[in-house]
Amino acid sequence: MSMGEPEGDEAVDYRFTLANERTFLAWIRTALALLAGAVAVLHLLPLGWSETPRTAVGLLLALIAGVVTVYAPVRWFRVQRIMRRGDTLPMSALPLITTFVVGLVCLAVLLGNLL
C-alpha cells in the first residue's frame, strides 16, 4: 500500500479509483470557479451596488469555495476507504448546499440589477 492511500480490506478496481479522483478534481474546479466569482463580485464587476451587498455576496461565494476546498479531499479519502471496505456510499449534503448558495447569489444578482 502506498503512502496516503486509505487502509481497507480489498483492492478497488482502478476505474473506480480514477472516477473518485475525477470527482475530487471536479470539486476543486467548482471551488476555483466560486472563488473567481467572489473576486469578480468584490473587485471587478461594476454592479452599481452599495458596499454591503457586494461584500456579502462576494464573501458568501468565497466561504462556499473554502468549504468545497476542504470537503473535496475529505470526500475523496472517505469514498476510497468505503470502496475498499465494500460498503455503500452515503449521500452528501454539499451538492444541495452548493446549489442553494449559488441560487441565492443568482437571485441577489438578479434583484440587485432590477432594483
Rank of each mutant, 00 (worst) to 15 (best):
S2N: 12
S2H: 07
G4L: 13
G4D: 10
G4N: 14
E5G: 06
E5M: 06
E5R: 14
P6Y: 00
P6R: 01
E7P: 11
E7V: 08
G8Q: 11
D9W: 11
D9S: 13
D9M: 11
V12Q: 02
Y14C: 00
T17P: 00
T17M: 04
A19F: 00
N20S: 04
R22T: 06
T23C: 03
F24D: 10
F24R: 00
L25S: 08
A26F: 09
A26P: 08
W27T: 05
I28G: 03
I28K: 06
T30I: 04
T30M: 09
A31T: 08
A31W: 00
L32D: 13
A33E: 13
A33I: 12
L35D: 11
L35Y: 07
L35V: 00
A40R: 12
V41C: 03
L44P: 10
L44G: 11
P46D: 11
P46K: 12
W49Y: 08
P53E: 01
R54C: 04
T55P: 08
V57M: 07
V57L: 09
G58A: 03
L60S: 12
L61F: 00
L63Q: 13
L63Y: 10
A65T: 07
A65F: 01
G66W: 01
G66E: 07
G66L: 07
V68S: 04
V68K: 02
T69A: 06
Y71V: 00
P73D: 09
P73Q: 04
R75H: 12
W76P: 00
F77K: 02
R78K: 09
V79N: 01
V79D: 02
V79A: 02
R81N: 12
I82Q: 12
R84W: 08
R84H: 13
R85D: 15
G86R: 10
D87H: 15
L89E: 00
P90A: 06
M91Y: 15
S92N: 12
S92A: 08
L94Q: 04
L96C: 06
F100L: 05
V101C: 07
V102N: 01
G103T: 05
L104Q: 01
L107N: 02
L107Q: 02
L110E: 01
L110D: 02
L110C: 12
L111S: 08
G112P: 14
G112A: 02
L115V: 11
